[in-house]
């Protein structure tokens, strides 16, 4: 081990069954990199937003199967972990403009939602701590506003989806719920409407034109000097 880890407490973790000693306090992602893994897949934003780094783990003397985002969860001594790939599913085709905002619309695209047995495995799996089962149940009974509210923070990591005995594809269904909710149910944001109108009227054409002609360095400068909303 290199000089820089002196004085740092080490913890023992098991990655796909192999034992490693890594410094305490690292995220799973950094710990894996420390252990010599190089991520090609299963990584994205490193900030807890993209949902690419789903990880499952167990602790010593505990039957529970925990889940987490590798970029957010810190390692603990005695962690048995593995990164899991995204739970695959065909992307359904639909046109939000032609759909009615009802529960049966969603059920007709994702009828497997009817198979939910309320086991709650999805809720336990969600690294965002969403009430996933309640959201599915809300869809089942047609309460889209409730469902959209419950799944607003879903990052489509697919961890619930791989745990579901009813083979429901939560992340696609939730996306549809939010789309329907946004289009038909949620109150329209007035400032957004106004801004879109302004754009369509060409109010920003000139500025955009200017941006398009800038070099990368000029962009960077502009970005660094921007007003940050507080």
């Amino acid at each position: 081990m290199g000089e820089h880890v002196k004085n740092v407490k080490m913890v023992k973790i098991y990655i796909m069954g192999k034992e490693y000693e890594v410094p305490e306090g690292l995220t799973i992602m950094k710990a894996m990199e420390y252990a010599g893994y190089r991520f090609i897949r299963g990584i994205g934003c490193r900030g807890g937003f993209c949902g690419a780094c789903s990880t499952i783990y167990r602790m010593k003397n505990d039957y529970r199967l925990y889940t987490g985002l590798a970029c957010q969860t810190t390692v603990q001594d005695g962690m048995y972990l593995v990164q899991i790939p995204f739970t695959p599913a065909e992307k359904p085709k639909y046109n939000v403009d032609e759909l009615k905002p009802t529960g049966t619309t969603i059920l007709s695209i994702f009828p497997e939602i009817a198979r939910c047995v309320a086991c709650n495995a999805c809720t336990k799996a969600c690294p965002q701590n969403l009430q996933v089962m309640d959201a599915i149940q809300a869809i089942k009974r047609g309460d889209l506003a409730k469902a959209a509210e419950l799944c607003f923070d879903c990052i489509s990591c697919g961890l619930c989806t791989i745990r579901c005995p009813a083979e429901i594809i939560h992340y696609h269904a939730f996306q549809l719920v939010r789309r329907l909710y946004g289009k038909y149910i949620a109150k329209k944001a007035k400032h957004l409407e106004e801004r879109v109108k302004e754009i369509l009227q060409g109010k920003y054409d000139e500025e955009l034109e200017k941006l398009a002609k800038m070099t990368i360095d000029e962009w960077k400068k502009l970005y660094e000097e921007r007003d940050i909303e507080k």
Partner: peptide
């Protein structure tokens, strides 16, 4: 209530 009563 159950699901049906909340929709159809």
């Amino acid at each position: 209530p159950g699901c049906a009563l909340k929709s159809t």
